Every structure is written in C-alpha cells, then in structure tokens.
Amino acid sequence: MDKGWMTNAVAITVIGVSYIAEGSASTALRSAGLFALSGAVTNQLAIHMLFEKVPFLYGSGIILDRFESIRIALKTLIMEQFFTPEKIESFVRSQERTIDLTPIIEQTDFTPAYNALVRSVMDSSLGGMIGMFGGEAIIGKLKEPFLEKIKTSTIEISQSESFINALNEHLHQGSGHLTDTIGEIVELRLAELTPTMIKEMLHALMKEHLGWLVVWGGVFGGAIGIVSSLVL
C-alpha cells in the first residue's frame, strides 16, 4: 500500500479506537487521529496539486503550467553543471597524453594506398619497362613489406611529439564548438519532452520522498493533536 494511504488508514483507525476508549484517553486518541488525518490529507492534496490541476484550486498543476520554464531550467542545469567550456577543456587536457591511435592504425587496411602506388608506377614512364618484366605481378611481391612498413611509419608519426602537439591544439580549438554541439543535442532532446513526460519524470524521481511528506504530516499532526488534548 502507498505510504500516504497507509498513513490515512492508521489515522482513521486511531479515530475509530478513540470511540471505544474511555475518559481522557478517548479524547487524546481522537485529537491525535483527527490532526494526523488532517496533516496527512493536506500534504497528500498539496502533492497531488503539484502534478495535477484541481478545479477551483488556484495554483494547482504548477508543473504543467510551468512546463517551458522547467525545460529551460533543465537545459541550464545540464550545461552549467556538466558541460561548461571549462570542464570540457579540463577533460581534453586530462586526456592529452592518453591518446593512442596505435590500435586504430593496426586495424586500418592500407591496401588502397598500395593500389594507388601501383597505379602511379604503372602509369609513369617506368610502366612500360616494368611491363616487359612481368608488370604488376613483379610489384605484387612488394605488397606485404609495403603494407607493414607504411603501418609502422604511421604509428611512429602518431606517437611523435609534433603530431601529438598538433592533435592537442586542434582538440583545444574545437572544445568551444563541442560545447555548442552538446548544447544543441541537449536542446533537441528536451524539445521532445511533453508536459506529461516532464510530469511523469519528476513524479518518478520524487515519489519516494513525497510519500514521506504525507507520513510526517500525519506524525506531526498526531503529535499536535495529543498536545492540544492535554492543554485543552
């Protein structure tokens, strides 16, 4: 059972018991039950009014009414807390020396580069001479050594100081554009949210804690009821 309805049930039970009890205990129990029920129901209604419009109750359905403001606030929160230019720049800086392109280069097929080399040689003035001695079949023996050499050379280039510095400089220059791109993605995603989706999302996030508001409303209401019965 929901925490709110359970609290209401307990309060109603206490009120029922008060009619069985006698003397000052009856009065105390009845006051405690009534105040607890009042506090719980009031908080329950207030929570309901956050998410749903209630006829004749001004201010109800505030989440639906303030949908656009909530959506803008969500974007501002996301961008200011997670994707500020400073934080993106800091992340890029922290990743500077961890960039290793070797695995990518190892998996890259350099055959198109070899084919381009063969075409260049065969189309050059040397093509006719090579054709007399077997043509591309002769050059084909160089394929594997060529591919291995170009792969090794590319890895050496990617690990050179000049290449790393150029790559890091490009990343730093692009961090501002990255912030704008992330902002656009966040905005597009939030634009897909409807008032109902916002309501359901916030309700799902807050449901557990909102339930405790009803419980504590009942507890404090009951305590006030007992104090009131003793004072009066």
Rank of each mutant, 00 (worst) to 15 (best):
V219A: 01
E200D: 00
A166Q: 12
I12M: 08
G225D: 13
K149M: 03
R189K: 04
I12T: 15
D109T: 00
E106G: 12
P55C: 07
A204D: 09
D65N: 14
V227H: 10
F56P: 07
T181D: 09
L213S: 01
M122V: 05
L202E: 02
E52V: 11
A9K: 01
A46V: 14
L101R: 07
L57H: 03
R66E: 02
Y114A: 05
Y19R: 10
L230Y: 12
E136Y: 03
A46Q: 11
V215N: 14
G4Q: 05
E106V: 12
G39V: 04
T13Q: 12
T181W: 13
A40H: 10
P55H: 14
I104N: 12
D2A: 15
A204T: 13
F110L: 12
F220Q: 13
M129G: 12
K87L: 01
G174Q: 15
L57P: 04
E208L: 12
I157V: 01
I104Y: 14
V186P: 13
Y19H: 08
E148A: 11
S90Q: 06
K141N: 10
R97W: 14
V118D: 09
A25T: 15
K207D: 03
G61W: 06
E187F: 08
E80Y: 00
I88R: 13
S153M: 01
M79T: 07
I70L: 00
E52Q: 14
I15R: 08
Q173D: 06
S162F: 03
G135I: 05
I12N: 07
T196E: 01
I15T: 12
R119G: 03
V215G: 08
S120F: 12
Q107L: 01
G174D: 13
S31V: 10
T27K: 15
D100K: 06
A40L: 12
S229Y: 13
S125C: 04
A40I: 10
E192F: 03
G134T: 13
N115F: 10
D2P: 15
I105T: 05
G135C: 05
S158L: 05
I164T: 02
I105P: 00
T154D: 09
L193A: 03
P145G: 02
T181N: 14
L210R: 00
T181Y: 14
S158Y: 04
I226G: 11
S162Q: 05
M1K: 11
G183A: 04
L210V: 00
A36Y: 01
S26N: 02
F35G: 10
L178F: 09
P195E: 00
E89G: 04
I88D: 11
T84M: 11
V219H: 05
E144S: 15
I104L: 14
F133C: 08
I20G: 07
E52F: 10
V41T: 15
T108M: 08
S228P: 03
I185L: 05
G211I: 01
F83K: 12
L29I: 00
I88L: 09
S60I: 02
F91R: 14
I99H: 03
S18Q: 09
T152M: 06
S26R: 07
G221V: 04
D123T: 09
F67D: 07
L193P: 11
L74T: 05
Y58V: 13
T152K: 08
S153R: 03
M197N: 02
S120H: 14
S125T: 06
